[in-house]
Write a protein that binds this DNA or RNA. Sequence first.
DNA 1: GCATTGATGTGATATAGGTCACAAATTTTC
DNA 2: GAAAATTTGTGACCTATATCACATCAATGC
Lengths: 187, 187
Amino acid sequence: MEEILRRQIEKIVPLTDDEFQLVLSHFSVGKYKKHQYIVQQENPVPYVHFVVKGLLKSFYIDKSGKSHILQFAMEDWWITDNQGFYNNQNATLNIDCLEDAQTYYITLDNREKLCAELQKMEFFFLQKMTAGNIALQNRILSLMSKNSEERYTQFIQLYPDLIHRIPKTLIASYLGISRETLSRLSH
Amino acid sequence: MEEILRRQIEKIVPLTDDEFQLVLSHFSVGKYKKHQYIVQQENPVPYVHFVVKGLLKSFYIDKSGKSHILQFAMEDWWITDNQGFYNNQNATLNIDCLEDAQTYYITLDNREKLCAELQKMEFFFLQKMTAGNIALQNRILSLMSKNSEERYTQFIQLYPDLIHRIPKTLIASYLGISRETLSRLSH
DNA sequence: GCATTGATGTGATATAGGTCACAAATTTTC
DNA sequence: GAAAATTTGTGACCTATATCACATCAATGC
């Protein structure tokens, strides 16, 4: 399992064995059951999680009670409530498990210590954050310029693996359309 | 003008005079006229710009020819086509000036050099990127969970300064609604 | 292995917001 | 400062998507 984390980092910065051990020593391992929450609205957000097994979703519940999925996270993805985690605020999002899951998680303090001890980790996190930004901007443009069908097609292209692991209902919620509309498309 | 850049950085990391001179030496100054493009679709994206004067917008033109505003940038904001800039690709966005503008701009190479020479600048960029991420995620949730009126109200709250500098037509394009609908809202 | 819960499909109907068309007001340009 | 360009408002009409209501089917828990 450690290997997944190591490969993820080494896609961006090479690491010696010792360096990777140092990295690893700043993380903890978490195991979670399907339906289990790892972040809850109104509660603190102590960790970012790197998923090594399973599938999670982060979602926002609006004032009318409707839930909107911000992100899915499967193996090799990072997930947290950014606003809560980085600004030390209570969560506005929820994160729960769609499948039994295992993560390596790290606190903000530990992340900062790690970056101080191993400069290239700061570069790594900057690269990840930058890639995240680009993806988010594309998602915004997609929401603004594409209709439901186009967004669904794009989703299939971008995340072919997810299609088979996630009920359509949730994909609809991620795409910002109703499950009925998606149902009528997908045929 | 330099002072604006310095204050922007010092909101996150303190700088000595020498350090700031080092920072500054990696930037160039650009002056642009209203209507001038500083990034064009299909062209390279050599710089990120820090705006010290004026107002710009970045926008995407979809396949049907409709334009969607991704971002405005006034004094103290950063702007570029991220995908083009960080991945060394051609632009998918356009950026032009809504008012005569002045920026400090930097290449990717120079940014990397600067971070290598002055570690805290990497921390600075990471912080900015993180804040950007949070803002983008909120915008996505806003697009998914709020109707036109709520999004407009939120825009006014978030960017009260911009309301008076930007025609409603463009605000509509930023909010992902038609100008007619916005006109009927604003009352 | 049955019972509960969740997922999916589909009809009928409602509606927010888009589009088109025109006129008036305002701003910009030379 | 007149002409051109841009912005804004508003009516009439259209459409994509939401909502509600069932029915069926599949998955999961004990």
